[in-house]
């Protein structure tokens, strides 16, 4: 029997980066009504961009903290390149069509991005160790944790808070909420819907890439990470309720802890327990834990 604390800490660390990915996914769904399968690819490309850019900092003789900045820039670059390309270049053509059709389009984009990243970065794994040593270790209970991992929890909180404040306390955010509530009426009121869609999609992609960039030091960056991330973040948003920010947070914590518990207590179930939880939640609460029926809310 492993310590409950161990499972909790591990689960919450896992939940933190997963929350950042899911936040982006749920934001895009909330505003554009698109469930973006290519979201996992954004995460993966963010991770690849980070392993490419972060080593530049020490190479240029900059202090190691600058590699964190490089990771941030990497995520931003991914969003600047891919978000307009995908939203303006492709998804725009299918607005107003069947949700499932757009789901297929994003699936096609996922397939394309899988191979594009293989063409750019090859199939061998990349590792990025240095940033993980930046924050030393922290003792919780009688176990030591890597400070960097705990920093991820703070990063997740900052992201969640920033999106929440951005939506509820800024003028642009209010406009986004209006568009979520009723895009047609908003358009009649003079809102530039195209710009709001692009903005939301950009922020969503940035969050995925950011999570990818900052988890790069924890994992080996290689083909296939996009697949596992997209499935996990789908599970998170389905559990929490599509389009809900608190839902994404709770969903991420549920998935993180359930997975951590499975890793320690029932390793055989690690792969499918998350989907099992998702299926159970869907059967009993189709709108997710944190979504009211019909009301579109973020």
């Amino acid at each position: 029997m492993y310590d409950v604390l161990t499972i909790l800490v591990d689960g919450v660390v896992y939940a933190s980066w997963l929350f950042i990915v899911a936040l982006g996914l749920t934001l895009i769904f909330g505003v554009l009504r698109i469930l973006n399968i290519a979201h996992g690819s954004m995460y993966a490309i963010g991770a690849y961009a980070a392993v490419t850019l972060a080593p530049l900092a020490p190479a240029l003789g900059l202090p190691p903290v600058f590699s964190l900045l490089a990771m941030l820039i990497a995520a931003l670059a991914v969003a600047i390149v891919l978000a307009p390309l995908m939203e303006r270049g492709l998804l725009r053509l299918f607005y107003g069509r069947d949700e499932v059709l757009i789901l297929l389009i994003t699936y096609a984009v996922f397939l394309i991005l899988e191979d594009v990243s293989k063409l750019i970065w090859g199939v061998n794994p990349y590792y990025l160790f240095e940033p993980r040593n930046l924050f030393g270790t922290v003792e919780i209970g009688d176990l030591f944790y890597v400070g960097y991992d705990l920093m991820l929890i703070a990063l997740a909180a900052v992201c969640g808070l920033a999106v929440w404040l951005g939506l509820n306390k800024t003028k642009v955010g209010k406009i986004v909420l209006a568009v979520i509530h009723n895009p047609d009426v908003s358009a009649c009121m003079g809102v530039n819907i195209a710009r709001i869609y692009l903005l939301a999609f950009f922020v969503g992609v940035f969050l995925a890439a950011l999570a990818g960039a900052f988890t790069a030091p924890l994992i080996s960056v290689q083909p296939g990470i996009s697949v596992s991330v997209i499935i996990l973040s789908f599970a998170v948003v389905i559990i929490g309720g599509l389009g809900s920010i608190p839902g994404a947070a709770i969903g991420a914590v549920v998935v993180g802890i359930v997975r951590a518990a499975a890793v320690y207590e029932l390793p055989e179930a690690e792969i499918f327990i998350v989907y099992l939880v998702m299926a159970i939640v869907l059967v009993f609460r189709p709108e997710g834990l944190f979504q009211r029926t019909q009301a579109r809310k973020i």
Partner: peptide
């Protein structure tokens, strides 16, 4: 009968979840 009430992407995702549960079980 368990999933017949769902529509659109919920139906799609629920079927994905079920197939992945099977995948996870078979792998182990």
């Amino acid at each position: 009968p368990l999933i017949a009430r769902y529509r659109g992407i919920f139906f799609a995702m629920l079927t994905v979840a079920l197939s992945m549960v099977l995948y996870g079980i078979l792998v182990k």
